[in-house]
């Protein structure tokens, strides 16, 4: 048994069936240093208070379920280790989306923004029985933005998104970027038109919150800047 560390977990709670306003709960835990914060939240749910509600699945940063505000910063609970937050950690639901219960928020607006980007390859040219060719350099061009797991950590860290529900937000733009800069795609113009409109990419004020928040290390702000430049200079090639 590895040595344990004391961890106080302070959680912002909300349950519309219990009371109309949010409240705070604190739990005192003993955890192992390399446990994930997600393990600590499970410890709360499984040993202290079964009513705690959160989303989680893969528990290693791929499924994108457990984005939350951890000590004031957006991150995935399964990618933050106890040793890095002990002795005390504060956990809140991500901001800018309606809280439904405890750490669970309404993701529908987030996914609607994503869908507005036409997030699928657009190319009506006839295909052969074999793959389209794409050079490693062309493939590399959009590699970074293929990593997005739609966890909403970036979008819900964006002050513009908090203030304006109409703004599509960083994650949607990242996913537009993924196709706009894919040499096989032919829908770039259409997407850039959408992004050039009022709720689009020019709402971004380059605060870099999104890049800091991305648990996948995507250079989100850079992707947004590239999309802005593509609209201004129309250099899709």
């Amino acid at each position: 048994m590895a040595e344990t560390v004391a961890l106080t977990v302070r959680i912002r709670r909300f349950n519309p069936e219990v009371r109309p306003d949010p409240w705070w709960d604190e739990f005192e835990l003993e955890m192992e240093p390399f446990d994930r914060l997600l393990d600590a939240l499970h410890e709360v749910k499984w040993r202290h208070d079964g009513t705690l509600a959160l989303r989680r699945s893969c528990a290693h940063g791929i499924c994108g379920s457990d984005a939350m505000v951890i000590n004031g910063k957006n991150d995935l609970a399964c990618k933050v280790l106890v040793k890095d937050v002990a002795p005390k950690v504060t956990v809140e639901p991500i901001r800018g989306l309606r809280v439904l219960k405890d750490l669970i928020v309404d993701m529908d607006t987030f996914f609607e923004g994503y869908k507005r980007m036409l997030p699928y390859l657009i190319n009506d040219e006839e295909t052969s029985e074999r793959e389209r060719l794409q050079s490693p350099e062309e493939r590399e061009r959009f590699d970074d933005t293929t990593k997005c797991i739609l966890c909403a950590a970036c979008t819900t860290s964006c002050p513009i998104f908090w203030g304006d529900e109409g703004y599509v937000g960083p994650a949607a733009i990242v996913n537009a970027h993924r196709f706009i800069f894919d040499s096989r795609d032919r829908g770039g113009r259409k997407r850039l038109e959408i992004l050039g409109e009022k709720p689009g990419v020019f709402r971004c004020r380059t605060t870099f919150n999104c890049t800091e928040a991305c648990p996948r290390g995507i250079k989100v702000t850079k992707a947004i800047q590239e999309v802005k430049r593509a609209i201004m200079f129309d250099h899709l090639g």
Partner: peptide
Amino acid sequence: RIIELEHWGFPFNRTPDGKI
């Protein structure tokens, strides 16, 4: 099925001559 995924935009790593 693999070719179909490619046609749907799957970003496969590529060989120097552009194949999957």
